[in-house]
Nucleic acid binder design. Sequence first.
DNA 1: AATGAATGAGCATTCATTCAT
DNA 2: AATGAATGAATGCTCATTCAT
Lengths: 201, 201, 201, 201
Amino acid sequence: MAEAKRAQSSDKRQRILEGALKAFARKGFYNTKVSEIASEAGVADGTIYLYFKNKDDLLISLFEDRMEWVIERLRSELAEVEGDIFKKIHRIIELHFRLATDQADLAEFITVELRQSAKFVKEYKNQRFVDYLVIIEELVAEGQKEGVIRDDVDSRLVSRAMFGALDEVLLQLTLSKAAGMDVERMTAQVADLFVEGLKSR
Amino acid sequence: MAEAKRAQSSDKRQRILEGALKAFARKGFYNTKVSEIASEAGVADGTIYLYFKNKDDLLISLFEDRMEWVIERLRSELAEVEGDIFKKIHRIIELHFRLATDQADLAEFITVELRQSAKFVKEYKNQRFVDYLVIIEELVAEGQKEGVIRDDVDSRLVSRAMFGALDEVLLQLTLSKAAGMDVERMTAQVADLFVEGLKSR
Amino acid sequence: MAEAKRAQSSDKRQRILEGALKAFARKGFYNTKVSEIASEAGVADGTIYLYFKNKDDLLISLFEDRMEWVIERLRSELAEVEGDIFKKIHRIIELHFRLATDQADLAEFITVELRQSAKFVKEYKNQRFVDYLVIIEELVAEGQKEGVIRDDVDSRLVSRAMFGALDEVLLQLTLSKAAGMDVERMTAQVADLFVEGLKSR
Amino acid sequence: MAEAKRAQSSDKRQRILEGALKAFARKGFYNTKVSEIASEAGVADGTIYLYFKNKDDLLISLFEDRMEWVIERLRSELAEVEGDIFKKIHRIIELHFRLATDQADLAEFITVELRQSAKFVKEYKNQRFVDYLVIIEELVAEGQKEGVIRDDVDSRLVSRAMFGALDEVLLQLTLSKAAGMDVERMTAQVADLFVEGLKSR
DNA sequence: AATGAATGAGCATTCATTCAT
DNA sequence: AATGAATGAATGCTCATTCAT
């Protein structure tokens, strides 16, 4: 019974997060009413406040939850990659772009809301996002140690630049839902761009 | 007299735009009250509505105005560059990053608000932003025609990726106001990353 | 419980309508603030919008509600009248004038706001008001069929004229709150005026 | 020159009054912006305040001006009437209804705004309107003295009732602009109604 | 006298949050 | 835990009026 309850609770919490994701993706944080999230989640308005402190907290929790999921997936996929650093970079890019098709709402949410949140939900240092960057950063650093990646670039800077590039392209992918983008080709091109840019010569 | 009046009007419009830029950069569009913009600009609340249809229009007009300025500056600086395509790409990056120190408010505004606006002010196709991308795109295309840039990447995709990278790094520069950043070094590194990535081999 | 809730809701709705009636009667639609209605009704400002779409809708709903009540009362009183058509006309007039003393606010509201509403809330065809007119009209038509009312007048025209006369006198009664008015005498005189005017000879 | 100026001034004042009449008739007092009146009159917004103290004063002045004109016309037409009191009553009614076709804006304005003004522009006792009523009242009193009108009705009450009847029918005429109302027939019927009602027997 | 840009008080409406049930 | 009716602070926008030119 205790588990049942927890399961139920957790189920409700998840439904609220999903509702919020859908709504935020569609209309953005500021244009989404709490009541819309509630109705999307199939719960009463007040119920949301049993699981989240307020609307801001809901946004933050959503980041935590989804970024955690993304990072976990990234880590596990990277672990599977056999081959050199550049293969891994390729995989990161592929995974990033795949979001646009696999998880359109999530892609839209991250690309659009990430910046707002970083800036306006002051007390919140988006740690998950930092984690994501660190994965790239460490990969680059590793490549540098191995000598396959040039030494004259700052790995943090590179991770930022790469994330920015990926995110912007993802945004484009997401917004222009219509066009039959060839995700594979895009992945190949962007990966190649960075790989060539990063190679030691 | 007519000119004086027009000058004064235009002056008031400019002051409102500046007030809006400052306020939006500081608190974001949704957290900025019209009355704050007014007081920042030193005009009455109602005066804003003599120059702009509503708060949304003010945001859009601000984009138009500032992006136009940025593009103009980019064009004129690019025209001055002597040397090959890669020198020009270097200059674009330099100019982009210089925003963080020269025009902190503008940098903050563009990096944070650009995405929101692209998405929620649906009827507004941010033409100026597209213009900016096109400049990069054309540069890449030109390089491809000349044979110095690899042929196997889509110039539009590259322009997106590059803009994303620049913007994300700029955001970082802007948020971590810690002066410590060596803009020149960053410019050099990012430029080199892309140049190497783009070179024909 | 469901009934209790509905009763309470309906109670709140009624209180808002009463508050609106009082306020509109006192200061007119345009000079009444929504917050005044709320405070008169003992609810929060926002609560009004749970029951009415907006201020206009509140006005219209108030008409619907009160005119319905007036008409119901008129119908039931007419049903009680024993005697000829003229007795019934007498009763209509009496009832109309009695509003001034029995329901001063309602009288003031109807006499003053009816015209405004008819004209400016264009999409609203004040059906209740038409219903009221029709009652008079049918009475006249009935009298004509019976041969006791002259045939050479249009019953719709007469109903309009009679309503106008009653309403104007009621307005006077209402505005000059000086109690001195002898409602019975007025009723007698106006009734006699119309009865004599309408009689077949 | 002085006359020219005065003429010009007076011309501007008239144009403002005409603009106000048109605008008020179309949209009512509260929904008409001062700037709309100004543009209708072909003057600047501020100019209106050279001729009228404020928007209320403009409304009052418009009443004064137009009612004065109506009364003057009524008096002169009544003076022309040859025949008994009842002929004169007939003429009053005819004149009243003729407004609907001759001066649609004025008719609309009077029927709709009269009541508002009576109630909400507190300091203003609409003397012109009272004058109008008095004309009817005196006519009735005269008829009573002559013995042709029944003695048992209060002439003030009758004047109110008659005005109300006329005004309501006029309102109907005005609002339903479409229907090819037969004004003459209506005049005849309403006049006959009151004449028969008022006759001594 | 005339203008119309500027003002700023005023107000309808929204919506995150609470709390009695 | 869950509900959803109720709250009331918050704010974008309007428009009568002013006043420098």
